[in-house]
Amino acid sequence: MSQQVTALTHRLVSSPAGRIHLVEQGTGPLVLLVHGFPESWYSWRHQLPALAAAGYRAVAIDVRGYGRSSKPGNTGAYRMLDLVEDNAAAVHALGEQSAVIVGHDWGAAIAANSALVRPDVFRAMGLLSVPYAPRGGPRPSEVFARMGGDEEFYVSYFQEPGRAEAEIEPDVRGWLAGFFAALSADTMPAPGAPAPHFVSRGGTLRDRFPTDRLPAWLSENDLAVYAGEFERTGMSGALNRYRNMDQDWEDLAGVDGAPITQPSLFIGGSLDAATTWMADAIDAYPTTLPGLVSSHILDGCGHWIQQERPAEVNRLLTDWLASLPC
């Protein structure tokens, strides 16, 4: 593990599902950092010391199902509302009444819903890579099933328990290396090449991953940290988040179309499919995020934004945090 993360404090706190693993550095106002798929608290290794140096109490979690946090066996235990309550429980277990929440990838959706459902706890919200799109429209599984024509969208591919696990778990390290490379600016497939977000009928996701190089942001040591966690825990806890999207759609019917009004931040990458596919969601921010303070698209950046561009993301985060009311 790199020298910059050796001064961190690790702890377990109680949550509705059992125990949540937290990694903490610094004192001051609390900033809760929520990772995405297929990562862990470690994806915030560049932000934790930077936020601490700027005067914040920076805390990164292992989301339920990941790393050292609890991993319920029931697929239904990974509903969005459960993850929201995990975040609120973490804040209270740390002795705080409120926090700023920042999320990347799935963590961005979890952060957005945390701010939406628990505004009493989360006073501001930052989203990295995945824009906020209010609940609405058809059932998610119906939308994903229509994508790709003769190919299968990766979210649909992940739905059947055990299917993606059978692809990933025999070679976790190799699969993660390819997945990270497929969505990184310096190693992603060239324009016009088959998209890595889709699966050919009868194929696997990794069929389209780069196999000959790691992205510049990912060292062999970093890869070993990620792979070691999933080799120990398996992939089902992480994949179960995808398997609850229809249930989330039902659970969140009461906030259909609702805006998030707290002060907010968005940072996306210009080469990230999440940013380009959801351009309409970004355009709708005046309505859906009326409290938006700061919005940025980083030119030439891929999906793993806080790891690909740590210095730039750290500056944008700390500038935004400094602008928030105490």
Rank of each mutant, 00 (worst) to 15 (best):
F179L: 12
P170W: 00
A182P: 11
G178T: 12
G162C: 00
G162Y: 05
E160Q: 15
P191R: 02
A185I: 13
P194C: 05
D171V: 03
R173K: 15
R163V: 14
H197Y: 11
G174K: 10
E169H: 08
P161R: 09
P191S: 03
G162L: 01
H197N: 11
F198Y: 15
Y154C: 08
Y157V: 09
R163M: 10
A181N: 12
P189E: 08
A182I: 09
P170F: 00
G162Q: 04
H197E: 14
F179W: 13
P196L: 05
A166K: 12
G178F: 00
I168F: 14
S184A: 15
W175S: 10
V155S: 12
H197F: 05
G174Q: 07
P189I: 04
A190Y: 01
G174V: 03
G178P: 01
R173L: 03
L176Y: 00
A181L: 13
L176K: 09
A195V: 02
A193N: 04
A181M: 12
G162V: 06
E165I: 04
F158P: 10
A195W: 01
F198K: 11
A177F: 07
F158E: 00
H197S: 14
G178R: 03
L176G: 06
E167K: 11
T187R: 13
E160I: 11
F158S: 15
E169S: 11
A166D: 11
E152R: 13
F158Y: 15
E169P: 09
Y157P: 00
I168W: 06
M188L: 13
A181Y: 04
H197T: 14
F198C: 07
F153N: 14
Y154G: 02
T187C: 02
F180W: 04
G192E: 02
L176M: 12
A182Y: 02
S184I: 07
